[in-house]
């Protein structure tokens, strides 16, 4: 379990996170949702230790992030996989080299052993045929899948994704969402996903944390989110025209 206690983060005058408390469980896809600029990325970067919070604590299965020595932190990092918003693939490397990078960097495996693992992971994300291509030569959806492959190649216990389906067409987006959920269940890992996409909320929102102005406005599951009376949440949920219509139909039907 990852526990987050009273997390604060400011940049100069701007107070971005104003005391967030929540927790994320194993084998579940946890969603952080909220409008652009609500602090989702900052929150995730604090979890990763890329940003140091001003106040509050992050606890990885009993390990207090702030109290870890540099070596322990390094060990923890190797249990973490991260999918960045823009994929963040190394553009000077092929797909295969990108996925192999963490293995090459941190394990003493033989080349053939690493290749086997890379093939296995690429097969899992359906990308065997793109192995020798460079990131600039493949589509956004494929780049995202490479990023996921790179994130899981070290068999992480924790997986973080920053808007994994932003910039993708709806169909590809759902494929990516489902892939992440399957990987989470198959490997029994803790997955935390940033999103502002209502489709993702519907599909994989096993736990949802709604951020607004740096505060946790609401939390619950994707079943509960459609029943809540919280004004901020309903505003967010029904900001999509489609959902607005569906809700209207639902209300009309009920009356």
């Amino acid at each position: 379990m990852i526990e987050v206690n009273n997390l604060h983060k400011s940049f100069g005058e701007t107070h971005v996170l104003k005391g967030i408390t929540t927790s994320f469980e194993k084998g579940k896809t946890n969603l952080i949702i909220g409008q652009s600029g609500s602090g989702k990325t900052v929150f995730l970067k604090c979890l990763l230790g890329l940003l140091i919070p001003d106040e509050g604590e992050i606890i990885y299965d009993g390990r207090f992030l702030s109290k870890l020595s540099i070596t322990d932190k390094r060990d923890l990092r190797q249990e973490i996989g991260m999918v960045f918003q823009g994929s963040a693939l190394f553009d000077s490397m092929t797909v295969e080299e990108n996925v192999m990078f963490p293995l090459d960097m941190f394990t003493k495996q033989a080349k053939s052993e690493m290749e086997d693992r890379v093939n296995e992971v690429l097969m899992r994300v359906n990308l065997e045929e793109a192995k020798d291509k460079f990131p600039s030569e493949i589509s956004g959806g494929m780049q995202k899948r490479v990023a996921i492959a790179r994130a899981i190649v070290m068999k992480p216990k924790y997986l973080f994704c920053d808007e994994p389906n932003s910039g993708l067409d709806p169909k590809t987006a759902i494929l990516i969402d489902n892939l992440i959920q399957e990987l989470t269940q198959e490997n029994d890992i803790i997955t935390v996903i940033n999103s502002h996409d209502m489709n993702s909320v519907m599909e994989i929102g096993e736990k949802i944390v709604f951020l607004k102005n740096g505060l946790k406005e609401w939390e619950g599951t994707n079943k509960e989110i459609f029943k809540t009376d919280n004004k901020a949440v309903t505003d967010f949920v029904y900001s999509s025209e489609l959902f607005k219509k569906v809700r209207q139909m639902y209300i009309e039907e009920r009356n």
């Binding site: 990763l48 890329l50 990092r77 190797q78 963040a88 190394f90 941190f106």
Partner: peptide, 15 residues
């Protein structure tokens, strides 16, 4: 370019 495309963050996250 590596900074703005978060490749540097990716390196740091990996340790």
């Amino acid at each position: 370019t590596m900074r703005v495309t978060e490749q540097i963050d990716a390196l740091e996250v990996m340790g």
